[in-house]
Write a protein that binds this DNA or RNA. Structure first.
Length: 294
DNA sequence: CACTTGACCTGTCCGC
DNA sequence: TGCGGACAGGTCAAGT
């Protein structure tokens, strides 16, 4: 669901729609997901103008000229959908997967002074929104621990390998999903990049060669970039800032393709459970390497 | 320390 | 048709 490419797609959409808009009203009644007080919201959000929309890991940052920021995590079923005045109250625009808003999973509604609105929807309520002083954002627990951005210029194959080798005793899929190792990878892109590098998800890092880790790095960067290009992966819930679905899953090689042939060797793809997650592999291309003594 | 499991939620799907 | 249970999978906390 929302992993790095999906959150980046939302960011790109919002960055084209939000900057310059002034917040006129905020409707929320969700203390668990959006714990700020009414007074906080009135003082630092209402009346403020959006200056930028950024992303770090799977977290969106909407910066305001009040020197506060909205910090938003979509977790599994979160959506941020913008509706301009022309759409509002008149059904949903063409191509949107989402119907009339607000709906029963709308948790927060931001209304701008021109009448346009931004809806935060989250069926399962795992997501969250925080209003924080912008200077305090890097200090939140998650950002203190999270690893490097995989698409940053300085995140080389060497940097990737060096960080993975610190977790030599762990299973590779668990390591890829660990946000403190590398930011932004979730279940979809872990499976896709492991398939690309022909690595079994249960392999211990120590048993994977440097060459294979280099292939994994290359595969990861490739699937992340391709997915951003395709607007992310829509399985059930994920939509972009305009409520539209992403098409990456059309290009997926293993994810959610159990029972179908491996695009490389035609062997039937199977689904396993690894690190508590549904995990998709080609049992021919991806085999557990022999254990190395350590 | 590292790994696994459960919790957080709601909606959907499957079998009986 | 109704109903219970499994499942979806990001992150944190607690347990082994």
């Amino acid at each position: 669901m929302p992993e790095l490419p999906e959150v980046e797609t939302v960011r790109i959409g919002l960055a084209a729609l939000l900057p310059g808009r002034r917040v006129a009203a905020v409707d929320f009644d969700w203390p668990k997901g959006f714990p700020n007080s009414d007074a906080d919201v009135q003082a630092h959000l209402v009346g403020a103008r959006i200056s930028a929309v950024k992303r770090r890991a799977k977290v969106l940052l909407i910066e305001l000229d009040s020197e506060y920021s909205l910090v938003i995590h979509l977790k599994m079923t979160g959506q941020l959908v913008f509706r301009g005045e022309q759409h509002f109250g008149a059904g949903h625009p063409n191509g949107s997967l989402v119907g009339e808003l607000p709906d029963k999973s709308t948790r927060v509604t931001f209304t701008f002074e021109d009448g346009s609105k931004l809806f935060f929807n989250d069926q399962r309520k795992f997501g969250w929104v925080r209003l924080l002083p912008t200077v305090e954002v890097p200090a939140i627990d998650f950002f203190q621990k999270v690893g490097p951005e995989p698409l940053a210029d300085d995140f080389t194959a060497e940097a990737f390998t060096e960080r993975l080798r610190r977790r030599n005793n762990s299973g590779i899929k668990a390591v890829l999903l660990d946000q403190t190792v590398v930011a932004g990878i979730g279940n979809i892109y872990a499976d896709e990049s492991l398939w690309a590098a022909k690595i079994h998800p249960l392999s211990h890092v120590r048993d994977i060669s440097d060459t294979q880790l280099r292939d994994l790095y290359a595969g990861l960067i490739k699937v992340l970039k391709l997915s951003i290009e395709k607007g992310g992966s829509t399985d059930r819930n994920y939509v972009d800032a305009e409520g539209k679905r992403g098409s990456y899953l059309t290009f997926a090689n293993v994810f959610r393709r159990e029972g179908k042939p491996c695009p490389r060797c035609q062997t039937t793809i199977v689904k396993l459970r690894v690190a508590g997650r549904g995990t998709h592999i080609c049992p021919h291309c991806q085999v557990v390497p022999p254990e190395k003594k350590s």
